[in-house]
Design a protein around this nucleic acid. Sequence first.
DNA 1: AGGTACTGTGGGAGCGCTCCCACAAGTGAT
DNA 2: ATCACTTGTGGGAGCGCTCCCACAGTACCT
Lengths: 351, 351
Amino acid sequence: MASHGVRGRSGGRPTLEEVAARAGVGRGTVSRVINGSPRVSDATRAAVEAAVAELGYVPNTAARALAANRTDAIALVVPEPETRFFAEPYFSDMLRGVGAALSDTEMQLLLIFAGSDRERQRLAQYLAAHRVDGVLLVSVHADDPLPDMLSQLEIPAVISGPRSAAETLTSVDSDNYGGARQAVEHLIGRGRRTIAHITGRLDVYGAQRRVDGYRDALREAGHEVDELLIEPGDFSEGEGRRAMEALLERRPDLDAVFAASDVTAAGARHALREAGRRIPDDVALVGYDDSAIARHMDPPLTSVRQPIEEMGRRMIDLLLAEVADRRPPASRELGRSQVVLATELVERASS
Amino acid sequence: MASHGVRGRSGGRPTLEEVAARAGVGRGTVSRVINGSPRVSDATRAAVEAAVAELGYVPNTAARALAANRTDAIALVVPEPETRFFAEPYFSDMLRGVGAALSDTEMQLLLIFAGSDRERQRLAQYLAAHRVDGVLLVSVHADDPLPDMLSQLEIPAVISGPRSAAETLTSVDSDNYGGARQAVEHLIGRGRRTIAHITGRLDVYGAQRRVDGYRDALREAGHEVDELLIEPGDFSEGEGRRAMEALLERRPDLDAVFAASDVTAAGARHALREAGRRIPDDVALVGYDDSAIARHMDPPLTSVRQPIEEMGRRMIDLLLAEVADRRPPASRELGRSQVVLATELVERASS
DNA sequence: AGGTACTGTGGGAGCGCTCCCACAAGTGAT
DNA sequence: ATCACTTGTGGGAGCGCTCCCACAGTACCT
């Protein structure tokens, strides 16, 4: 435990100045040591570090933020209501990945929901006040004004799941198209003939790409695409159930379903059960995300794994690079990166 | 959209000073308006508000924090690894309640995990730097040094789930003892005779209280308490399963189980299924928390509801009061509040 | 001997607020 | 008219840092 040592005023924490006095150096030198500048002699550095340890000095973040015009914090913005966030493992997995990537850093992570108009309002204020150095945007809808607002405010931002093929922000995504193809090719390989698809929210680009992958995989295998086998959902369990019921009504002969998320698949499973269909005997089921749900489902769910942890890490890397680039405001428009990571099919008992 | 108006230097956001100039008043007056001081005439207030709107002024948080020595942020500290946090609905429900209570405020919420030693280290730094005005502590173990650290640093804190009957920090909790009694009395009322209990982590005070409630309810109904019917768990699904298997081995004649959490009950359900016991025909099952899991379980789970949203709200109220009290450092030790909220049994098909 | 270039260091200025003291103007009792 | 308050306002000082300029010291060329 660090001794608390001498204090300028009672109750206050030690300041840079006090550390400087203790170490017999100037304020600037202490600042250099704290910030890891190389332009300090070894002897001086040691003396300062000793003083820091003796006094139990911790830099005052507010003062630093004010003087340096940075906050050492980034926000993870989720443009969905809280309820949705906690219901979908995708978000919490992402948060975990981001958190892990960030724990090597001095950066602080803020979690911000922007589901309601009210929350949007607060967020706008928040961003306008530049309370964060950068923003991570997760699962954005096609018509969301948030990305443009960020561009306008010149706040570094990375988006997970681009809004379109022409995304202007730096983005990180998994290969939704390829993942969907893997799923459908797998089902075809198992001899399934009538493969339905319950989509995600179609105003999310990734959901569209999964539909594209579904279509192309069928076509290339010589199947024709029956639009009656495609039912729009919204990634939720309730919609998965509803969509499954609709599909069973329209095409009672279907023998496989590719759901756009594990949660959707869970909903579909309920509907299949109630309709008396056995999984996988009567109907094979494949999900997307390979979340905890997939492993715990009965039967365990075959699912397309996205490397979410890796995605989080890449997002952080890119964002921090943009934040760092900011300081010399030279090179802008140097080609936004669009990172796409491969998916992997995890086969389980449901297919 | 607010016009951006005149700027002191290019690129900068407007400052208090600029607003003051625009409104034709002094800096102090603008500050008073921004902070809602009553000591401003209506005319002046209107003029300032107009200037604020025209310039799109947003206060600089860092400057405010530095000058006023407060951060307008509080932390929700979870002394568990992230994985556990996301696995247990209790935490996310709590977070939702706290978030809702906070959205009426200017306060910012930080979510901090302190599961690993590394995270602990960071947290200590964080607190030492006084980067938050107050702390919400969730699910603390009996021997956790965190609360004492907070007292030492004189950081206002509210704890959800006191560490013992003699908790020194302000606390908010549900009536664990009463909730457990409700559950057991319900089972007795349904004619169950051999009621087992899978506990939570016994180093959590609330888990102990549930055991106490279980015991007393049985005794008062004239049953004797068989220690073989009590199996310690840790709130997790895996332990629920393991504990259930152990109980079935020891007392194959049991006809009811009271689990210390819904997640635990889910684990127990698996074990019961594999052992070929029907719910509720052979064995009745009651959980705790009334989380989403309880509603979705098959069959739906009878569970003890804690008013988590309300708990979050009360915690915030108490914490903000402490934060406000802090400024005049007069009245300390004025009797920490210990709030206890009532639980409610939600009956479903599992019992 | 004088230049030129670096390295390491000290400390002034300033970031944008809040706090508080000073003071003008108004109000009412003496 | 005088004093004693109250109300509203302006602006200096200062919060604890970072940034940057100045400068001493050393080293290595001419």
